[in-house]
């Protein structure tokens, strides 16, 4: 499975996205929201689902990376993120491979929790293109491979 712009790094994440998308209500919201920006209230009215359920679905859809929330003035609006799902045994296998390569927990165990604090300072700079990964590795005091893993698994790459 690949979803544009999404970093599916574990089978748990993959299962969560599929679970969210397995609800007919969620699919209805997606269909209505396609190409538009709407508030939860307007969506509830259009789809005919109680507002509390719509809010619950939108929260899950946002967590799954399917929709994004933004504010305009006092209004909170939602729009669909561009995505395309392709699922095949090979792609699921590659998610499993990626899961196997997860290193953050190992690195914290090995080097101590202090590295998380450093990562929070350094990560945004890498994300903005203000720091190279080589220099991030140097600052974190880890090898390049570990630095890349930390940055990627924590959403900075």
């Amino acid at each position: 499975m690949s979803m544009n712009g999404m970093n599916i790094s574990s089978l748990d994440t993959l299962a969560f996205i599929l679970r969210v998308l397995s609800r007919v209500g969620v699919l209805r919201l997606l269909a209505v929201l396609r190409g538009k920006t709407m508030s939860a209230e307007d969506l509830a009215e259009e789809v005919g689902i109680p507002i509390s359920t719509v809010r619950k679905y939108l929260t899950e859809m946002e967590r799954a990376g399917i929709v994004e929330k933004f504010r305009t003035g006092n209004a909170t609006l939602y729009r669909v993120r561009e995505f395309r799902i392709v699922i095949s045994p090979e792609v699921v296998g590659s998610v499993l491979e990626r899961e196997k390569t997860r290193m953050t927990a190992d690195i914290i165990k090995e080097r101590g929790i202090e590295i998380v604090k450093k990562l929070r300072e350094i990560g945004p700079l890498v994300k903005e293109g203000k720091l190279s990964i080589y220099d991030a590795a140097e600052m974190l005091g880890v090898t390049y491979v570990e630095a890349y893993a930390l940055l990627e698994e924590n959403g900075y790459i």
Binding site: G93, R98, T101, Y144, Y148, I157
Partner: peptide
């Protein structure tokens, strides 16, 4: 560069 090699490797590709 290193980042591309590692990115592909981490995806098993």
């Amino acid at each position: 560069n290193s980042s591309a090699i590692i990115a592909l490797q981490r995806r098993g590709q």
